[in-house]
Amino acid sequence: MKKFWLFIVLTCVFFSCSDSNKSNNNPNIPNYAVNAYLNTSLPSYNNLLYVSSPVYVPNYGAKGIIVMKTGEGTYTAFDAACPNQALTSCVAMTIDGIYAVCSCDKTSYNLFTGLGGQEYPMKQYRAELSGSSVHVYN
């Protein structure tokens, strides 16, 4: 019986572990180090106090980052580079409501999920609320 429970526990641990970088690899977007603190008290980042009000932040990642509050204390952060185009062929994606739109192929990507119906989703970064700042990092 002990072997059975050990098998169950090891199986659960094995399947619950995942390599978050593996699903976030994209041959079109290099892996840049990102470590940004966005103070929601500042006018530039004040929209991050409200759900579904994304903010574009230049000078991070490949083409800047897009950050959005998705719920109480939860945020998403994605690279603004078009995930299915060569990095040099497009400018940063633009925000249209809760979507990011690629300038090259006009694909819309949902800022809750990063999905856009193409081969690669948006490149995602970690985002956590830390006091009055949103910490975006990888």
Rank of each mutant, 00 (worst) to 15 (best):
M1A: 14
K2Y: 09
K3P: 04
K3H: 13
K3T: 11
F4R: 15
W5F: 15
W5T: 09
L6P: 04
L6I: 15
F7S: 12
F7N: 11
L10N: 12
L10Q: 11
F14G: 13
F15T: 12
S16E: 12
S18G: 12
D19A: 08
S20D: 15
S23H: 12
S23T: 14
N24K: 08
N24T: 07
N26L: 10
P27L: 03
N28E: 04
N28Q: 07
P30K: 11
N31Y: 13
N31D: 15
N31W: 11
A33K: 13
V34C: 00
V34Q: 06
V34H: 06
N35W: 05
N35C: 01
L38Y: 04
L38R: 00
N39R: 09
S41Y: 13
N46C: 06
N46W: 11
L48I: 07
L49S: 13
P54R: 05
P54V: 01
V55M: 07
Y56E: 03
P58I: 02
N59I: 07
N59G: 05
Y60T: 03
Y60I: 05
G61C: 06
A62G: 07
A62W: 05
K63L: 02
G64V: 01
I65E: 05
I66S: 08
I66K: 06
K69P: 00
G71P: 06
T74M: 08
T74F: 09
T74A: 08
T74S: 10
A77I: 05
A77Q: 05
A77K: 00
F78A: 02
A81K: 06
A81I: 03
C82D: 03
Q85H: 05
L87F: 04
C90D: 07
V91A: 10
M93Y: 01
M93W: 00
T94W: 07
T94N: 08
I95K: 04
D96M: 06
G97I: 08
G97R: 12
G97L: 09
I98Q: 10
I98M: 09
C102Y: 01
S103V: 06
S103K: 15
C104A: 09
D105A: 02
K106F: 08
K106R: 14
K106S: 07
S108K: 15
N110W: 02
L111D: 07
L111N: 03
F112Q: 09
T113Y: 03
G114N: 01
G116R: 01
Q118W: 05
E119M: 14
P121F: 07
P121N: 08
P121W: 02
M122K: 07
Q124N: 14
Y125T: 00
Y125Q: 04
Y125P: 00
R126L: 14
R126D: 13
L129M: 15
S130D: 12
S130Q: 14
H135M: 02
Y137R: 06
Y137H: 10
Y137C: 02
Y137K: 09
